[in-house]
């Protein structure tokens, strides 16, 4: 009888210790489900300006029009540098005469921000 009580006490103690351990370190469940990212598109009306169609045909493949609309007022030279960078560094296949048209568009819509 006493022996069985001892066993029961020991058993209860074990449960108690286990419970403490469990409280201290909850078993982490790892989420192994397939994770799908739904990208959010927030439509923006492109700024109106000359050569807008050239700009849209060449530039929005890689980035939203917000890359232009968010910029502060920049000089024509700075805009030229940006377009050159897109062509030479990022590999945008923009013919030279179209690049010049795009710069005109960028300067026009950017200046309108003032």
């Amino acid at each position: 009888m006493i022996r069985s009580m001892k066993i029961m006490c020991a058993f209860a103690l074990m449960l108690f210790i286990e419970q403490i351990a469990a409280e201290e370190k909850p078993a982490k469940t790892i989420d192994e489900s397939l994770h799908i990212l739904e990208l959010t598109v927030v439509e923006q009306k492109p700024l109106s300006g000359p050569n807008q169609e050239v700009y849209l045909a060449n530039c929005v493949t890689c980035h939203t029009t917000r890359y232009v609309s968010m910029q502060p007022v920049l000089s024509e030279k700075k805009w030229g540098d940006e377009v050159t960078k897109m062509v030479k560094v990022f590999g945008a296949p923009i013919p030279e005469e179209q690049a010049a048209q795009i710069v005109k568009y960028l300067v026009a819509v950017n200046t309108n921000k003032k």
């Binding site: 990208l39 959010t40 598109v41 980035h63 939203t64 968010m70």
Partner: peptide, 19 residues
């Protein structure tokens, strides 16, 4: 402008693509 994207609360939208 604010936007709520996946797993996010309302945050300030700087650009949407890329986010």
């Amino acid at each position: 402008e604010m936007v709520r994207m996946q797993e996010k609360t309302d945050l300030i939208l700087v650009t949407d693509r890329p986010p």
